[in-house]
Amino acid sequence: QEEEKEIKRLAKKFNASEEEARRAWKKAGGDPETAEKILKKKG
């Protein structure tokens, strides 16, 4: 599933848990760029 792959990639890229990545993904409405910004800010 595309979403799961994206979440795993985000978690790995930002050294975050999949739970954090999933939360960022949901907050971003499934937009990878926005999710990255959220995780970057958090990191």
Results as ranks from 00 to 15, higher is better:
K37F: 06
I7S: 01
K37E: 14
T34S: 08
R9V: 05
I7N: 01
R22G: 03
A28L: 00
T34I: 15
K8F: 06
E6T: 08
E4P: 03
K5N: 13
K37I: 11
A16C: 15
G29Q: 11
R23P: 02
E36H: 04
E2D: 14
L10W: 02
E2W: 15
K41E: 15
D31Y: 03
A35H: 00
A16K: 09
Q1Y: 12
K5A: 13
R9I: 06
R23K: 12
L39F: 03
A35Q: 01
K42I: 13
W25Y: 14
K37N: 13
E6F: 11
P32L: 15
E20C: 12
K13A: 07
K42L: 15
K13L: 12
N15H: 13
E18Y: 15
A16E: 06
R23L: 14
E36M: 07
K5W: 12
K8P: 02
E3W: 09
P32D: 02
K40G: 14
E19A: 10
L10F: 02
L10Y: 01
R22L: 09
E20G: 02
E4H: 07
R22P: 00
R22S: 05
K13G: 02
E3K: 06
E18P: 06
E36R: 03
L10H: 00
K40C: 09
N15Q: 09
K13F: 05
A28S: 09
L10K: 00
L10N: 00
E36S: 07
A24G: 00
E6A: 12
K8R: 11
K41V: 10
K42T: 13
I38Q: 02
E20D: 10
A35R: 01
K13I: 08
E18F: 13
K41Y: 11
A16F: 07
Q1T: 12
K27F: 08
N15E: 06
T34Q: 14
I38Y: 09
E36T: 05
R22I: 05
A16T: 15
A28H: 01
E3P: 06
E2K: 08
R9T: 05
E36I: 06
E2Y: 12
I38D: 03
S17W: 02
A35P: 00
A16S: 09
L39Y: 00
E36V: 04
K42V: 12
A28F: 01
E2T: 10
R9K: 09
K13Y: 06
K37W: 07
N15T: 05
E18M: 15
E19K: 05
W25I: 11
E2M: 10
K5Y: 13
A28D: 00
K42W: 15
L10P: 01
K37A: 14
E18Q: 07
I38N: 03
I7G: 00
K12H: 10
F14V: 04
K40N: 12
K40V: 08
R23Q: 13
E2I: 10
E19T: 06
E20K: 03
K42D: 12
K8G: 06
K5V: 12
P32N: 06
E4V: 08
K41L: 13
A28R: 00
K41A: 15
A35D: 00
A11K: 04
A24K: 01
E33W: 08
E20V: 07
K26H: 14
G30L: 02
L39N: 00
K26A: 13
E2A: 11
R9D: 06
E36C: 06
K37L: 11
E6Q: 12
G29D: 08
A28I: 00
R9F: 04
A16G: 02
P32V: 15
K8A: 09
A35S: 03
K13V: 06
R22M: 08
R22E: 09
K12I: 10
E4S: 07
K40I: 10
A21H: 00
L39E: 01
A35L: 03
A21C: 11
R9H: 05
K27G: 07
K12A: 12
A16Y: 05
G29T: 03
E19G: 06
Q1N: 13
E20I: 05
S17H: 03
E19D: 11
K13T: 05
W25F: 12
E19R: 07
K13H: 05
E3C: 13
K37Y: 07
R23S: 09
E2G: 10
L10R: 00
G30H: 04
K26M: 14
A21M: 03
G30K: 06
K12T: 08
E4A: 09
E18L: 15
G43S: 13
K37H: 09
A16I: 15
K26N: 13
I7L: 04
E18A: 06
K8N: 07
E4D: 11
G29V: 05
I38F: 07
A24E: 02
R23G: 07
K8L: 10
I7M: 05
K5H: 12
P32F: 12
K37Q: 12
E4W: 09
E19F: 05
E2F: 13
E36L: 03
G30V: 01
E2Q: 10
E33D: 11
L10V: 02
F14M: 10
E3M: 11
I38E: 05
K26S: 10
E19P: 04
K12G: 07
F14H: 08
K5I: 13
D31I: 10
K8H: 08
K8I: 10
N15I: 03
E4Y: 09
G29M: 10
A28C: 04
F14G: 02
G43I: 15
K12E: 12
Q1G: 13
P32C: 09
G30Y: 04
K5M: 15
A16L: 14
R23T: 11
P32H: 07
E33V: 11
Q1W: 14
W25M: 14
K42S: 14
F14W: 10
E33F: 10
E20P: 00
E33S: 10
E18S: 04
K41P: 07
K13S: 05
K41I: 12
K40H: 12
L10E: 00
K41T: 14
E4M: 10
K27N: 10
G30R: 04
K5G: 08
S17D: 06
K26P: 03
G29Y: 08
K37P: 01
